[in-house]
Simulated assay, not measured.
Amino acid sequence: MREGDGSAMLDGGKSHFHYGKDEACYYPPTTIDRVLREGDVIRLGEIAVTALNMGGHTRGNTTFVLDVVEDAKSP
Rank of each mutant, 00 (worst) to 15 (best):
N53M: 08
E70F: 11
V69N: 08
G6F: 00
H16G: 01
R43W: 07
D71A: 14
R34N: 06
A8I: 00
R34Y: 11
R43V: 06
M54V: 15
R37W: 02
E23Y: 02
D11C: 00
T30I: 09
H57V: 08
V35E: 12
L36N: 02
P75S: 09
H16T: 01
I47T: 14
V41T: 14
D40Y: 06
H18M: 12
A51I: 02
L52P: 00
M9S: 00
A8R: 08
K14C: 01
R37Y: 10
D71G: 14
I47Q: 12
D11T: 02
M1R: 02
E38D: 13
Y26G: 03
G45E: 04
T63W: 07
A72N: 15
E38M: 01
R34K: 15
S74M: 12
G60L: 09
T31C: 02
H18K: 14
E23R: 13
S15T: 15
G12P: 07
R34V: 07
Y27V: 14
D67V: 03
G39D: 10
D40M: 05
D71H: 13
D5G: 11
G56R: 05
G55D: 12
E3I: 03
N61I: 01
T31D: 11
S74G: 10
G55L: 06
R34L: 10
T50M: 11
G6R: 09
N53Y: 12
T62I: 13
S7E: 14
E70W: 11
V69T: 15
E46L: 04
G56L: 06
S15N: 10
H18L: 15
A8L: 03
G12E: 08
S15C: 08
E46M: 03
N61S: 15
N61V: 03
G55E: 12
H18Y: 13
T30P: 00
H18R: 14
E38W: 01
H16P: 04
G6C: 13
Y19N: 09
A48K: 14
P75L: 14
P29A: 08
N61H: 15
K73R: 15
L52I: 07
G20K: 03
D11M: 01
M54H: 08
E38R: 07
G4R: 05
G12I: 09
A24N: 14
L52Q: 10
H16L: 07
H57F: 11
T50S: 09
I32W: 03
T58P: 01
L10V: 08
